[in-house]
C-alpha cells in the first residue's frame, strides 16, 4: 500500500475567536500570538492512513504545500507514524486557490508515481472549501469518495463509509482512489517520544514547480481561477442580558422568568 496524505499548515482554528485578526492591507488572517498548526482535517487524514497501514502494511508519504513552513509543525505527521515528507515549498506557491493548490499537489503525486490511496481532509480549517481532494481526483482521473468515516482495503478496492446528514453510505471504490476524511474516523493519535525522535531524523524532500515539470504560472496566485476581492470580519452586535442570582439555582429561575416575560416560550 502506497498511501499519500495531503496536509496543510494553517493558523490555529481552535484558538479563541478573540485572537483572530485580519490585516486589511494584505487581506490576510492571523491568530494573534498563537502558533500555526497542522490543518485538523488533514490530521484526521493522517490518522486514517495510519489505520490503513496498520491493517495492510505499506508506506505513508505526506505532502504539504506552502511557503516558510515550520518544520516542527509539518513534521507532526511523521511523529505520528508517517514515513516520508515532501514539501512543495516556494514563493511561487503563495496565494493560490483550490485550483492552483490541487494542480500542484496532483503534479507532485504524479511525479511520485506509485500510489494506491490519496487522502485529504474533508475541508481545510481556513478555506472551508473541500475542493482539493475531488480536484486532485479529477486531474488524475481517479474515483473519489468524500467525507469518509471508515476506510477498509479489500483486495483491489476500498470499502468506505461516507458520512451523510442522516447516517452513512457504505461505498465500494476501486483503488487507486482519492478519499477525503472526516472527524468520525477517530481522534488523531498523539506522537510518541519515539515517533518524535524518528521524525527529527527524517529530512523532508523539497520540490519546486520546476522539479515537477510544471510552469510557475500554473501555481500559487498566478494559477488561480478564483480571486479574493475582500476579507472581512462579520460583526456581532448582540448584547447578552445575564440572569443573576445569589445562587446558580436562583439565576436559573430568573432566566426562566426573563424568557417568559420576553414571550420566548
Amino acid at each position: 500500500m502506497n498511501i499519500v496524505v495531503c496536509v496543510k499548515q494553517v493558523i490555529d482554528p481552535e484558538a479563541p475567536p478573540s485572537t483572530f485578526k485580519i490585516d486589511a492591507a494584505s487581506n490576510k488572517a492571523e491568530m494573534h500570538g498563537v502558533p500555526p498548526v497542522i490543518d485538523p482535517y488533514g490530521e484526521y487524514a493522517v490518522e486514517a492512513s495510519l489505520k490503513v497501514k496498520e491493517a495492510k502494511g505499506g508506506k505513508i508519504t505526506v505532502i504539504c504545500l506552502g511557503n516558510n513552513l515550520s518544520r516542527e509543525v509539518v513534521k507532526k505527521p511523521l511523529a505520528m507514524g508517517a514515513d516520508e515528507l515532501i514539501l512543495l515549498e516556494d514563493e511561487a506557491y503563495v496565494g493560490g486557490d483550490s485550483w492552483s493548490t490541487a494542480t500542484a499537489l496532483a503534479a507532485a503525486i504524479k511525479k511520485m508515481g506509485e500510489y494506491d490511496l490519496i487522502l485529504c481532509g474533508r475541508e481545510a480549517s481556513d478555506t472551508n472549501s473541500g475542493q482539493t481532494g475531488p480536484g486532485i481526483a479529477e486531474i488524475l482521473g481517479l474515483p473519489c469518495v468524500t467525507i469518509a468515516r471508515k476506510i477498509d482495503i479489500t483486495g483491489s478496492a476500498s470499502r468506505v463509509e461516507r458520512v451523510t446528514s442522516d447516517g452513512y453510505d457504505v461505498m465500494e471504490v476501486p483503488i487507486p482512489a482519492v478519499i477525503t476524511v472526516s472527524n468520525e474516523i477517530g481522534e488523531p493519535r498523539y506522537p510518541t517520544i519515539k515517533g518524535i525522535m524518528t521524525a527529527k531524523k527524517i529530512e523532508p524532500v523539497v520540490w519546486k514547480p520546476d522539479d515537477m515539470g510544471i510552469d510557475s504560472s500554473r501555481v500559487g496566485a498566478a494559477g488561480q481561477r478564483t480571486r479574493l476581492n475582500k476579507l472581512f470580519q462579520p460583526v456581532h452586535e448582540g448584547k447578552c442580558e445575564m440572569a443573576e442570582g445569589d445562587s446558580a439555582e436562583e439565576a436559573a429561575v430568573n432566566l426562566a422568568l426573563k424568557l417568559r416575560e420576553a414571550k420566548i416560550f
Binding site: 475567536p17 456581532h236 448582540g238 447578552c240 442580558e241 445575564m242 440572569a243 445562587s247 446558580a248 439555582e249 436562583e250 439565576a251 436559573a252 429561575v253 432566566l255 426562566a256 426573563k258 424568557l259 420576553a262
Partner: peptide
C-alpha cells in the same frame, strides 16, 4: 457564546439546568 447569546447564565449547568 455570550457574545452571540441574547440571554445567559454564568454557572455550572448541573446546578442551573435542573432549576431552570
Amino acid at each position: 457564546i455570550f457574545r452571540q447569546a441574547r440571554f445567559g447564565v454564568v454557572g455550572d449547568w448541573k446546578k442551573v439546568l435542573p432549576a431552570f
